[in-house]
Design a protein around this nucleic acid. Structure first.
Lengths: 249, 249
DNA sequence: GAGTGGTCTAGACCACCTA
DNA sequence: AGGTGGTCTAGACCACTCC
């Protein structure tokens, strides 16, 4: 029961009760939560308040709501997930061969723009220098997998075109004589914008992994800045650190 | 203006209008959004609906609400962030020396439990075998930085105690004669539970990076399973991939 | 048809901030 | 004191599911 005189809002108190019941297995995966009408009676609150109590549990993925059926404790996701190493700069075709699935690149947008200060700094070009700007979606077996926004130094790739980008960007690089690439990434957890969420086919409130990447050639020259958003639904990301001596303390 | 006969809910239509204004810089960082009362008049909706339109923008971190002041387009976070490599298995003291700040470990819970099937599988021990269970919070200069839930094979560490855990776990390992450790991580973006959110001092709706880690000795024997939750507020995580030849296509 | 969740209203009281 | 966001109510109509 909730405390009507507490400083904790009703909806938070109810949320914590439900959350504890799930955590302590009083409510098990697949079990229905009380209906909204039941919660109104049980806790003596209005329906809007009862709904709000469940909202955050839905956002966390702890419970699922179905219109006309009810609200249920989520079952752990048992779908087999593809595992990909996060610490290598893999090209699409390398991903395809490692997961043995068909990878498709879809170019959503391609244009040329003057470099903003941020882009110019990352690509080590003057501000306002011409850069390629593109949005691409990568699909594995038809499932949207990666949404990528990127800027490339136009001076290095004067003849980059839509055909090359709809195929493999790295095949294009190789054809230009560039043999090796490395990258520097920053990794974030993020709630995606509506645009990215829709492109990746995600539910509202589902966080994504966001990598901000600078890719460079073997000589150290950066050629691309990108923001890469990963759909976590069917893929997990792995990192292996080999045994390493513990330092002196 | 919104379309009252559309199948798109009012709150989503308003959210999209605001989102577009921010994206197209009609509303700039620091600018106030219309107040809730203004939005009610402007779009002819109730206040609950107007609030709901802004909720998701708040969750995304696109806008910030301040009671008594108003709602404003969020300014990009310019605080200097500590950058840590995600691809190494760093001990607390290594982190401390690399960021030149004071790192404190706080033990929140310590007990012994029978291994669940999942824990037993990861640690390669029989089900129900005794394992240490602990919750720890790591703080850098007083700021909660990492929340860690972990299980360790009790057979390997019969004398593990609270004192060792409040100090450095790896100092303890070293004192037991274990010289090198590696790890296998899976990385997720996640909305944290209330417990973790409060321990890390996060706002509601702020996603965290979650690493599920198996740590092992040089001989390959796993000794610890942990779920590590990272506060992104003051730290970013980096990954460097050195230049690597592009494969044949 | 009965029950479920999804949306929406038109008020209300409150805590907090700025003035 | 007046304006802001935070919470809450007691209804309402709807789309959908299940029987």
């Amino acid at each position: 029961m909730i405390d009507k005189h507490s400083f904790i809002p009703f909806y938070l108190q109810i949320e914590q009760i439900l959350s504890r019941q799930i955590r302590e297995n009083a409510l098990r995966p697949g079990d229905p939560l009380p209906t909204e009408a039941e919660m109104c009676r049980q806790y003596q609150v209005s329906r809007m308040t009862a709904r709000k109590a469940v909202d955050y549990l839905v956002r966390q993925g702890l419970v699922e709501r179905f219109r006309g059926r009810g609200t249920f404790v989520a079952r752990p996701d048992t779908r087999v997930k593809v595992q990909l190493p996060l610490d290598q700069h893999l090209t699409s075709s390398e991903v395809a061969s490692s997961v043995r699935r068909k990878v498709v690149n879809r170019l959503l947008h391609f244009s040329q723009q003057p470099a903003t200060p941020e882009v110019a700094g990352a690509l080590q070009v003057p501000e306002q220098a011409a850069v390629h700007y593109m949005l691409r979606l990568r699909l594995i077996d038809g499932t949207p997998f990666v949404y990528e926004q990127s800027w490339m130094n136009q001076a290095l790739f004067p003849d980059l075109n839509t055909q090359a980008l709809n195929q493999s960007k790295y095949a294009y690089l190789k054809s230009k004589g560039y043999g090796a690439v490395g990258s520097h990434k920053q990794i974030f957890a993020e709630l995606p914008s509506t645009e990215i969420r829709e492109a990746l086919g995600l539910a509202r409130d589902e966080p994504v992994l966001h990598a901000s990447v600078i890719a460079f050639f073997a000589n150290g020259v950066p050629f691309e800045l990108s923001n890469v958003y990963y759909n976590q639904r069917h893929y997990t990301f792995t990192l292996d650190a080999p045994p390493r001596p513990l330092l002196a303390l």
